[in-house]
Design a protein around this nucleic acid. Structure first.
Lengths: 152, 152
DNA sequence: TATTGTTATACTCTATAACTATA
DNA sequence: TATAGTTATAGAGTATAACAATA
């Protein structure tokens, strides 16, 4: 029997798991002396490769001037560097350093790593959950679903 | 077949749903001219009743002085009010006004409302998901699980 | 002396506006 | 003239430290 209250409880339980993972990620940010936007930026660089500062501002939905500050900080930390773009002398690209690659990979792993409890489900339940989340994904409207690139 | 990659994808899909709900809640905060901490505070008051300012600071994991600012703002908005505590004249309690009750209930509903996609699952899959999330809940260590009181 | 809430203050995060150098 | 990035500056959010009232 699945009534409305039970559906809400189901959702609440899922939310609890999310919150815990979010906390883990935020702790990882703090340990690396990064704010969430800085973490977001380097994970974006890891997935997308060298990125024009303007495009980074668009992606992060923030003002361009803030990207200047983020880039400054990432350079200070030795995680990323500015590079002139090949074709347009106004443009700079932001690119990860080798150290930045390592840090980004570590943060990305923290983010995508399923909670241990998920691993401890039976194979059958893991398969159920996989199938059901695919249905959720297909059933969700665009407004409801957002690609979880990183947590901001 | 459920290999590690599939488990990660399952988790990623769930994260996507979560992110979307988070956005909805943040929009609801913004419409009410509340920051997440203010929303957090009034939902706490809704669940816990009148609360000493000191206890609110502990609950919100912030400095006591910040609660002064939060209380000021909530009073300005007519959502909460300070009351002297009965037993200790140093202490003030924060309590929701009738308007605050309404606003808190609305925010809480936004927060706990399951995504539409969850409702559109078959009864059988809803039951599966309910059962599996209970297993997740029971299997999670304290460090992994956090009661999703509100989103900060 | 210790604790509650407040004030004064400072620091961080982020945006807006003005500027430069290219295009 | 328009665009990419920077600088200067301002505002919001939040903490720290000192303070008054009460325990």
């Amino acid at each position: 029997m699945v009534d409305d209250a039970e559906l809400t409880e189901t959702w609440t339980r899922l939310m609890g798991l999310f919150m815990s993972r979010r906390n883990v990620l935020f702790e990882a940010f703090a340990e690396l002396q990064l704010t969430p936007p800085h973490g977001h930026a380097i994970i974006t660089l890891m997935h997308g490769g060298p990125t024009r500062m303007r495009d980074m501002a668009t992606h992060m939905a923030c003002d361009a001037s803030y990207i200047t500050a983020v880039a400054d900080r990432l350079e200070e930390l030795g995680l990323a560097e500015r590079r002139p773009a090949a074709d347009d002398r106004r443009v700079k690209e932001l690119a990860l350093t080798p150290k930045g690659e390592q840090v980004a990979a570590r943060l990305d792993a923290v983010f995508t790593e399923p909670p241990a409890a998920l691993r401890e489900l039976s194979r059958a339940d893991q398969a159920h959950l996989s199938r059901i989340t695919k249905l959720l994904f297909d059933g969700a409207t665009d407004a409801e679903w957002m690609p979880p690139r990183t947590l901001r």
